[in-house]
Design a binder for these strands. Structure first.
Lengths: 242, 242
DNA sequence: AAACGCGGTTTCACATAATGAAACCGTGGA
DNA sequence: TCCACGGTTTCATTATGTGAAACCGCGTTT
């Protein structure tokens, strides 16, 4: 009813969801296929421009056709457009700034934001890149990302010295269990945040939904009070994505 | 050496480079394959999230996985990032505003801009959508797009009444022959522009490179004087893309 | 210098997956 | 009621896709 070879090739493309460069052998292990099979599938993907191969490093990465295709669907499928009404609805309910973050390597990127109805000092612009080591949404992106992300973050050269790594690991485990993360003045003095994950239909982490505000207003009590509303909004957003 | 079924499936994906919604029968014709073959290939693409099918209209469109993959490569492959240095270099050479446009249906979208070093009145922001019926870059996107685009533009409900269709067809044919398009005060009073195409490695039109400025400064003579520089910059940009 | 290990590439025999023709089904129009 | 069309399923056929094995090049170890 379907075509097995095609599904194998697509599985290869999906290896690149959160990794930029992969060798033939790495791909072979990820998709559990014979390396000669993978070799031929890669040749087909490369020939049509969906992957490119770096001649020197022999690593593959996503090709230009992916961008070209995405340029066509961006307006209709971009979560920062699709989810905006729900972000506004949530902002009106909780009164603070609402943001969406995705992970890109060892950074998180703010892809959408709706600002608080209350007075605020300053909001970082959409498109900003922040380290993955601090902040509530960073913790969500680490906790629910691939299991290797924790180690990568801890080994990253940008790891802040004031945070004990074993403590961090424990935090991440607890966050995964609780389903949300908080931060109080971790990234910026006087600022607090609470964040929850947003998943795809096949339970892969897509992004982090974050509510942030001044720490004198967004207290732990206020976060707990609003947590059900935030989690419900995240679930609604999951249904709004294709 | 490669896998035929995979290449067929990728050909199906490439049907969506400039069309949003397609039926099984349309796809079958475009890729010249048996409809039962196409049916199974579509099932595989849909199953992995690369295409979605509208239950009511029975049309297929690109799925969420394309966006997810592109989110990974956007920073490294997005032309509006990659080509920025060359846009700045060209701006410094010709002194006027430089823009990149892509076609999206019956509109063109400005995906990048570097503003003039001279005084200017106002520049439309990146992301703006303009009709495909007027402007130099519109003509480039029509002339070098798929052959059906001319008819689509002419049949579009937004066609301006003051432009004779046979004259427009002749203009488009001439532009394709000359390799550039000009416009003087077509979209906005007092503004002129010259535009050239940027192609992919396999000679598909990717986008239009445009130089624009006030019509008293950017005269026909000035355009012709700068045309070799603009064409050379477009060729350099083609080599800067993956 | 020789042997070894590893990643990438090619070969080849084999089994089955992919294919396309034909039939079927549902729907809308004449 | 009949017909045309698009989508879906069936089935016989064979060409394709596969994986084991071998080969190649390169760097490392002995």
């Amino acid at each position: 009813m379907t075509v097995r070879a095609v599904e194998r090739a697509l599985d290869i493309l999906l290896c690149f969801l959160d990794r930029k460069d992969l060798t033939l052998t790495e791909i072979s292990k990820v998709v559990s296929l014979n390396k000669s099979t993978v070799y031929r599938l890669l040749s087909s993907l490369e020939g049509k421009g969906f992957l490119i191969r770096n001649q020197e490093t022999e690593k593959y990465r996503l090709g230009f056709r992916i961008w070209e295709l995405s340029a066509n669907l961006n307006r209709d499928h971009d979560p920062s457009v699709l989810l905006l009404p729900e972000l506004v609805r949530l902002r009106d309910l909780v009164g603070e700034t609402i943001s969406l973050y995705v992970r890109d390597g060892m950074e998180r990127v703010r892809i959408q934001a709706v600002e608080s109805t209350e007075s605020i000092r300053r909001v970082a612009p959409v498109g900003i890149r922040l380290p993955l080591s601090v902040g509530a949404s960073s913790k969500i992106l680490v906790a629910y990302g691939e299991t290797t992300v924790v180690d990568q973050v801890l080994n990253d050269s940008g790891w802040p010295e004031g945070i004990a790594k074993p403590f961090y690991r424990q935090q991440i485990a607890e966050i995964k269990e609780k389903g949300f993360a908080t931060s109080i003045e971790e990234r910026e003095t006087g600022t607090a945040a609470v964040s929850v994950p947003i998943f795809s239909r096949d339970k892969q982490l897509l992004m982090a939904l974050s509510v942030s505000g001044p720490s004198n207003r967004l207290t732990i009590e206020k976060m707990k009070e609003n947590l059900p509303i935030i989690k419900e909004a995240a679930q609604r957003m999951e249904t709004m994505l294709p």
